[in-house]
Design a protein around this nucleic acid. Structure first.
Length: 539
DNA sequence: GACCCTAAACAAG
DNA sequence: CTTGTTTAGGGTC
């Protein structure tokens, strides 16, 4: 019956966008999933209220699905004006009905209005206040709902069902006093190590509920620290559980900034890179990738395929990256991803590395680089900055620079980053320039594969390089390789890898289904983790 | 007491 | 204003 509406309801979100690129596998974040228009939805329901019996019918449809329903139904009389279902249940249905299993508050309201006869008339006016309040209340109160920060939309967060099942139980009162790092670690781990470890999960998780069913959701309840956590702010599990990881995967958003910390915490995630200079870079890249994933789930891989709208996509990703408060660093890296192509440019830049040059560089070339640029620059952290710079060099111009060094520095100031703080600044600043949106876009478009894979490229890079020379300190390898070669290397490798990757991705497919779904696609987990090392990377 | 619903105060953005 | 979080009061089972 009317319920169908609900089914229909789901789609509302879809229409989001994607004019250009084929919806196909889009995995990345939808910039604005939220669609204001709701237009699609609009028609949807029309059920005409047939459901007078709001009661049953209304929400009913799902009843089958939700076991809980049974319980609710007890006497047969409806407990609420709309039926036996509680707000929590309705919300759950709403979310489930969504293709991506996530909705914003507004969308939930919408769903209610469309799908539940009782609310149909109450949707608009002020009358809504009451039930909407209740909805919000339920969302925040129950652990079964988790909130995922949604930057893309710019609006409200995504609400999802807590895989762990947070029962209807209320969420434990959070606000633990000071959390520990454990939380951080957990999170970090999730992200960094995320690889796929099904659930590493929480160290001491309270056992919220193992709910291990969802491998994808690491769910590490353990601790969340709220207050403190700016870190968490991005997405915070309401009560106690939900892990950050989750958010990362589920929603494109997430926004991490802790990279630094993470790094420290997690010495060498994937590769044992710890040893040489380069390696760290790699690590970072990974993280970066993750970051990207946040935004665009499988960006690296899939995006390539999608290539079509790469331009936008890229941007979006950048956006997301920067947005987060701390993001600066992240951002930088993010760019780095795209940079590989630019290497030559950067290398040149590196030469200049004079402070003056810096400005000069900025001035002339700087087209209005969007926010991104700004952001990147801003975050320059003193300490961090230095680190960054060094790394950055490595990543970006790194090869070039080093190669030069090895060859014999043209000048006295080969890679003085360390020596000169300024240089450090320079780099970051430079990056933006190079990366400027347009450039990026163009680059991207031109070599979609490259850009897309860039992240991987890094990873690949190391291995490849190694392969060329045999396992040895990365640094050496790079030294050897002339810039050009490097690039070529990238290119070729990329191609091969891409296929490989794609295949592997498909093969693994854990969550691919989602990705390939029609419109939106959920971001998802897989990309990051899998892509990172599993398949294609020779271990 | 567990669950729910409703209201409302507050804080943020 | 919207979104979220919390508290509090009442009801029902």
């Amino acid at each position: 019956m009317a319920e169908a509406g609900s089914a229909a309801a789901a789609p509302d979100i879809d229409p989001d966008f994607e004019p250009q690129s084929r919806p196909r596998s889009c995995t990345w974040p939808l910039p604005r999933p939220e669609l204001p228009e709701a237009g699609g939805a609009a028609g949807a329901a029309e059920e005409g209220a047939g459901g007078a019996a709001a009661a049953a019918a209304g929400p009913g449809r799902a009843e089958g699905a939700r076991a809980g329903g049974a319980a609710a139904r007890k006497g047969g009389s409806r407990r609420n004006a709309w039926g036996n279902q509680s707000y929590a249940e309705l919300i759950s249905q709403a979310i489930e009905s969504a293709p991506e299993k996530r909705l914003t508050l507004a969308q939930i309201y919408e769903w209610m209005v469309r799908s539940v006869p009782y609310f149909k008339d109450k949707g608009d006016s002020n009358s809504s206040a009451g039930w909407k309040n209740s909805i919000r209340h339920n969302l925040s109160l129950h652990s079964k709902f988790i909130k995922v920060h949604n930057e893309a939309t710019g609006k409200s967060s995504w609400w999802m069902l807590n895989p762990e099942g947070g029962k209807s139980g209320k969420a434990p009162r959070r606000r633990a006093a000071s959390m520990d790092n454990s939380s951080k670690l957990a999170k970090v781990r999730g992200k960094a190590s995320k690889k796929k470890p099904p659930l590493q999960s929480a160290p001491e998780s309270t056992a919220d509920s193992p709910g291990s069913q969802f491998p994808k959701w690491p769910g590490s309840p353990s601790s969340r620290s709220n207050e403190d956590s700016d870190v968490w702010n991005t997405f915070r599990p309401r009560t106690s559980s939900n892990a950050s990881t989750i958010s990362a995967r589920l929603s494109p958003i997430l926004t991490e900034q802790d990279d630094l910390h993470e790094e420290e915490l997690l010495p060498s995630l994937v590769y044992s890179s710890a040893s040489s200079n380069v390696p760290p870079t790699v690590t970072e890249e990974l993280e970066l990738i993750d970051g990207l994933n946040l935004m665009s789930p499988s960006t690296s891989v899939l995006s390539t395929q999608q290539s079509a709208s790469s331009g936008q996509i890229q941007r979006d990703s950048s956006f997301s990256l920067r947005s987060p408060s701390a993001a600066g660093q992240t951002t930088t890296f993010g760019n780095s991803l795209f940079n590989p192509v630019d290497i030559s440019l950067q290398s040149s830049v590196s030469h200049f590395s004079a402070p003056q040059t810096l400005e000069a560089l900025l001035t002339p070339s700087s087209p209005p680089p969007r926010d991104v640029m700004m952001t990147q620059v801003d975050p320059v952290l003193p300490q961090t900055g230095s680190r960054m710079s060094s790394r950055t060099l490595l990543l970006l111009g790194g090869q070039a620079a080093q190669s030069k060094m090895s060859s014999g520095n043209p000048r006295g100031k080969p890679t003085e980053q360390q020596a000169e703080p300024v240089s450090a600044n320079v780099l970051p600043s430079t990056l933006p320039i190079v990366t400027s949106p347009q450039n990026t876009a163009s680059i991207t478009s031109l070599k979609a594969p490259v850009s897309a894979t860039t992240a991987q490229s890094v990873q690949l890079g190391s291995p490849l390089l190694l392969s060329s020379a045999s396992p040895a300190p990365l640094g050496l390898n790079q030294d050897r390789l002339p810039i050009d070669l490097d690039i070529d290397m990238y290119m070729e490798n990329l191609e091969c890898d891409m296929d490989y990757i794609i295949n592997s991705e498909l093969m693994d497919g854990e969550g691919l289904d989602f990705n390939f779904e029609p419109m939106l696609s959920t971001p998802s987990y897989p990309s990051t983790s899998q892509a990172s090392n599993h398949t294609w990377v020779p271990s």
